[in-house]
Design a protein around this nucleic acid. Sequence first.
DNA 1: GAAAGAATATGACCTTAATCATATTTACGC
DNA 2: GCGTAAATATGATTAAGGTCATATTCTTTC
Lengths: 209, 209
Amino acid sequence: MSQKKPYMTIAKPTVEEDILLSWGAAYKKVNKGDIIFMEGGQSCFYYQLVKGRVRWVNINEDGREFIQVMIEEGESFGELPLFDEMPYAATAIADEDSIVLRLCKSHFHQMVRSSYDIHFNFTRLLVERLRFKFLTLKEIAYNNPEQRISNLLRYYKRNTSIGDKLVKLQYTRQQIADMTGLRVETVIRTIRNLHERGALKIQRGKVFF
Amino acid sequence: MSQKKPYMTIAKPTVEEDILLSWGAAYKKVNKGDIIFMEGGQSCFYYQLVKGRVRWVNINEDGREFIQVMIEEGESFGELPLFDEMPYAATAIADEDSIVLRLCKSHFHQMVRSSYDIHFNFTRLLVERLRFKFLTLKEIAYNNPEQRISNLLRYYKRNTSIGDKLVKLQYTRQQIADMTGLRVETVIRTIRNLHERGALKIQRGKVFF
DNA sequence: GAAAGAATATGACCTTAATCATATTTACGC
DNA sequence: GCGTAAATATGATTAAGGTCATATTCTTTC
């Protein structure tokens, strides 16, 4: 039950907690389902996830979500507007009860200016995110559901496990669908197929690979 | 004929030419179709486009291209590996005869370290590219061909023209297809429809809007 | 451990864009 | 201006994934 969750960590803790605190950041508790900020809104804060999980999504007219990034512990989010003064590109929603660190915009800018290393970490983070987008985009543009899902899983595993021991997927089929632009049913069917062909294992609905 | 081309400029000149030159950058001529660097390869240089156009693409097993970014004059490209030491995420091909500025990796790092503003410009560029990826991804994931294409055109126009005077699209149908993950025929048909409904104009095959 | 609510599963049918084939128009070199 | 290559156009057919409806299994809570 209280097993260590194998998180999908795209980046290491962006900024050390104590550094953020020294610049005046404050902890904030958010409940599952809470909206932290909204697509199109103006930005006032830098956010970093301390505990929990946040999904960073676009929501279309029919209420369908597209998950742009799953934010895991230690990762920053909502930093785009802090660098280009544009509105938020997507909405941040707590995927589970979470704790975030929040630093106001002006202090954030001072902090970035104060240290090459901190600044470089952000540059690096953006590069990693961009790389992931390059990958996702070519997947979605050219591959069939099976390849899209397989490659997402491969990526997940690479960022989640050491060695090649079995990993339990921490996403629902719906979330996979929302990350790949497919429908739940298609994801379910595809994962079933992969299971039948031995490419992964389904145990009580959960995916292991 | 020699009209000023309304380029799609996602970013302003990333680094001023004379600054690059002072750090030891050298001009290099490339012919239309030349490969500047290849996906998966190791990176040795920073590149910036002086003249012409470069497409930055993933190519799949069947030889189909997916255009990740169209690089316009003044923009940098291939900088991802310089920040994260990973291989190139895509292949850069000269879309027309072009001139690039090339700066070796170590000098690039010194340059970035030397000036907060130069560093910040890169951060900003990455943010803009990331924003564009967010946009493209949600388009591709959730919209039909018509919306994908319309939104691409809208984005093109915003980055290309001042005011709302008519713009001539500088992309072929094939390139639109390679940017949206659709097929040429679909793009052709969709643009025809848009033309029929008065959303844009086709004159001798060229698109104006 | 029973009930309620998520999440997963599965079948039948339908729609949309891909595919393939071929024609026409436009651009370009000499 | 003629010939060739590239780009655009259009019809017929197909297949892949979406849609809808419903069932089953798993998880959580009291």
